[in-house]
Simulated scan of single mutants.
Amino acid sequence: MGQYLAWMMMGVSAVALTACGGGRDSGPSRGRLMAPDKLNAAAFSASGLPSRFGDTAPHEWDGLVPALYSVHGIDAARYQGMIDWSTARNAGVSFAWLKATEGGDHIDPGFVANAPGARSAGVPVGAYHFYYFCRTPEEQAKWFMQNVPHVPGDLPPVLDIEWNHQSSCKRKPDPLTVRTEMARFVNILNKHYGTLPVIYTTPDFYADNDLGQMHGAEFWLRTVAAHPSERYPGEDWSFWQYTGTGVVPGVGGNVDINAFGGSPESWSRWLSARRQS
C-alpha cells in the first residue's frame, strides 16, 4: 500500500487537468429499480463454475477455472431489482458490490435499495462508482461521498474505470492523464472512508493506459473468457469478474459473478484489513 500511496502522490502533481464540461444530462438522474424474473441456476449449470451458480451464455472453461476458487460474490445494479440476500448468501454469495453513482450527477437506486438487506443478511457489501471522463475526479468523488455513507464494516469503495463507447463523453485522455485522474479520485476516497478503493477495470483499458505502473494498487479484473493471468500477464489481483451472464439464487435476471483470489482464511484476513472502520 505504501507504494500505491507514493504513486498517487506523484501522479497528483504530475499533470494539471481541466474538465470538459457537465454530465450527460442536465440534472441528477436516479433511474428506476428493475424487477426481473428470478432464473433457476440449476437450469443453467455450466462447467467450470461453482455448482450452485449458473450461466446463460457460458464459456467453455478449462485449466484455471472459476470453480477452483472458494470465495465468490456478485456485483449488481438496478437491473437486478430487489435481491433476496438470505437466499443468495445460502447459495454461496460471500460479498457484493453495488453500483451507487456515475459521473457527477447520476445515482443508481440499486445501492440504497439493496445495501441494507445485504448487511442484515451478513453479506459484506460495498459501493462502486462508474467513472465519467467529462467530469473532474474531484466532482465525482464529492458526488460519491454525498450518496454513499461511511458505514463501518462495509467493503472498500470501488473505482470502476473502463472505456464506455456508448457514453456521450468522447474525451479519451492520454495514459498519464488517466492515471493521474485515478490517483486524485482514489486519494480523496481513501481519506474519507479510511481505506483505499479497489480498482475495477477491463483488459483493453488496462493495456491502453499502462495500469501495470500502478504498483501496489489492488485490482478487480474483468476477463470472461480466460484466467486473469492470461489477460493481465504478471499483474496481481484480488478479485476476478468471470462472467456477466451469471445466474445466482436470490438475484433477478443475469448478474456479474466474481471470485476472490485466495483461500477462505485469506478472505477472512482481507476482510479484517480492508473493511471500513
Rank of each mutant, 00 (worst) to 15 (best):
G2T: 12
G2L: 07
A6M: 07
A6R: 14
W7Y: 11
M10N: 14
G11W: 01
A16T: 11
A19I: 06
A19V: 10
G23I: 09
S26N: 07
P28F: 10
P28K: 12
P28I: 10
S29A: 08
R30N: 12
P36F: 07
P36G: 14
D37E: 12
K38T: 10
N40L: 04
A43K: 05
F44I: 02
F44L: 02
S45N: 03
A46E: 01
G54H: 00
G54N: 00
D55C: 07
P58W: 01
W61C: 04
D62E: 09
L64A: 06
V65G: 03
L68M: 13
D75T: 11
A77E: 15
G81W: 15
I83M: 08
D84W: 05
A88W: 15
A91C: 06
F95E: 01
F95H: 07
F95I: 09
A96C: 15
W97Y: 15
K99P: 07
K99E: 12
A100M: 09
T101G: 05
G104V: 08
G104Y: 13
D105Y: 12
H106R: 14
D108A: 04
P109V: 15
G110C: 10
G110M: 09
N114R: 03
S120N: 13
V123I: 09
G126T: 09
A127G: 07
H129T: 10
F130V: 13
Y131S: 03
F133L: 12
C134A: 13
P137D: 03
E139A: 13
M145D: 14
V148K: 09
V151R: 02
V151G: 05
G153R: 07
L155E: 01
P156D: 01
P156R: 00
V158N: 06
D160I: 00
N164M: 10
H165P: 07
H165D: 13
H165C: 05
Q166H: 10
S168Q: 14
C169I: 06
K172Q: 09
T177R: 01
V178A: 01
E181A: 01
E181G: 03
A183G: 04
F185N: 02
T195L: 05
V198M: 11
Y200M: 02
A207R: 00
A207Y: 00
N209M: 01
D210W: 02
D210V: 04
H215K: 14
G216R: 01
A217K: 00
E218Q: 14
F219D: 05
W220N: 00
V224F: 08
H227Q: 02
S229Y: 10
E230N: 11
R231L: 09
R231P: 03
Y232M: 03
G234K: 04
Y242G: 01
T243S: 06
V248D: 02
V255N: 12
V255D: 12
N258G: 05
G261A: 15
W267N: 14
R269H: 14
W270I: 07
L271M: 12
R274G: 08
Q276M: 03
